[in-house]
């Protein structure tokens, strides 16, 4: 039993959202690089903001892809995005200062191959498939890279596989206590995969409005940032993590309130403890 997926028309054109998302997240990722010039990774939260910008773009892409009637395919779109993205992000992270550029190019290649396979081998024949999966892979890669950067303060691979723990007063470097070695990357993967698909999955229907869907995408991004900020207390200096936590909480409260206001605007009625009102046409 599939539910017909309908999307609202109008709003900001998709290409505009894409350019804002791509350029914004790219700049935010490079801002985290300034951490190397600071005493502590105070700018780590920009990684999270890069993820938020990418998620807003990704939600709009999923809306375009899924308007071809992929009802139950909405969550799978999120999974394939992050699945292709995590590969690109981890490989890209090994290239030092070039990380964001290499990650984006590699993700585009992986996404295009996935799209071509889906259209020509699996024969799904959806016109927007190749371009959408390319975009989604880039979004997934930026999300993983951004949130991982937020957790450990750097987008370089060495920082992601080196953690420290204190044993008998000595600080020892280990792989086991790092973002990748500790498995935190798995948490980041799931946070991104659910956040990217939730906005459209939650708002689909004939009354879908772009501003409400994208606001929800930003809300999901900030919510993911809150949890990553809490995890980052295990990796980076307390004040840097605290700053990241405050930025995430403020962003989340703002977007959540805005989302509730937009839902109130779009809802048929906003009732508290009232019975069912049968529609005028009758059931």
């Amino acid at each position: 039993m599939t539910v017909k997926v309908e999307v609202g028309a109008g709003g900001v054109p998709h290409n505009k959202v894409m350019i804002y998302g791509l350029v914004g997240s790219f700049i935010f990722l490079y801002l985290t690089y300034l951490n190397t010039y600071l005493q502590a990774p105070y700018l780590a939260f920009f990684g999270g903001l890069a993820a938020v910008a990418a998620l807003v773009w990704g939600a709009d892409t999923i809306k375009h892809l899924c308007s071809y009637g992929l009802g139950t395919g909405v969550p799978s779109a999120g999974m394939i995005a992050l699945g292709s993205g995590v590969l690109a992000a981890l490989f890209g992270a090994t290239t030092g200062v070039l990380t964001p550029i290499v990650t984006i190019i590699l993700a585009a290649i992986i996404g295009a191959i996935t799209g071509l396979l889906a259209n020509h081998v699996v024969r799904m024949d959806i016109p927007a498939m190749v371009s959408s999966l390319t975009e989604l892979a880039i979004v997934g890669a930026i999300t993983v890279l951004g949130l991982a950067t937020m957790a450990c303060g750097t987008f370089e691979f060495l920082g992601m596989i080196t953690g420290t723990f204190t044993f008998l007063g000595f600080t020892v470097q280990t792989y086991g206590m790092s973002v990748i070695g500790g498995g935190v990357i798995a948490v980041i993967f799931m946070l991104g995969a659910i956040a990217i698909q939730h906005a459209f999955n939650a708002c689909l229907g004939p009354g879908e409005k772009q501003d409400r869907t994208l606001m929800l995408a930003a809300e999901c991004g900030f919510l993911s940032m809150i949890t990553v900020a809490i995890i980052s207390f295990a990796f980076i200096e307390t004040y840097a993590a605290l700053l990241a936590f405050l930025v995430s909480v403020i962003g989340w409260i703002y977007t959540y309130k805005r989302y509730i206001d937009l839902s109130k605007r779009d809802a048929y009625a906003w009732l508290d403890a009232k019975p069912i009102i049968e529609p005028k046409g009758g059931a």
Binding site: I194, P206, G207, I260, S263, A267, L271
Partner: peptide, 23 residues
């Protein structure tokens, strides 16, 4: 948080069919 946003989103998008949001 995810549960609340999912209910609000789905229900608000069904406004055409006169389904209200019951808070």
């Amino acid at each position: 948080v995810y549960a609340t946003t999912a209910y609000l989103g789905r229900t608000a998008s069904l406004s055409k069919f006169e389904q209200p949001v019951y808070i």
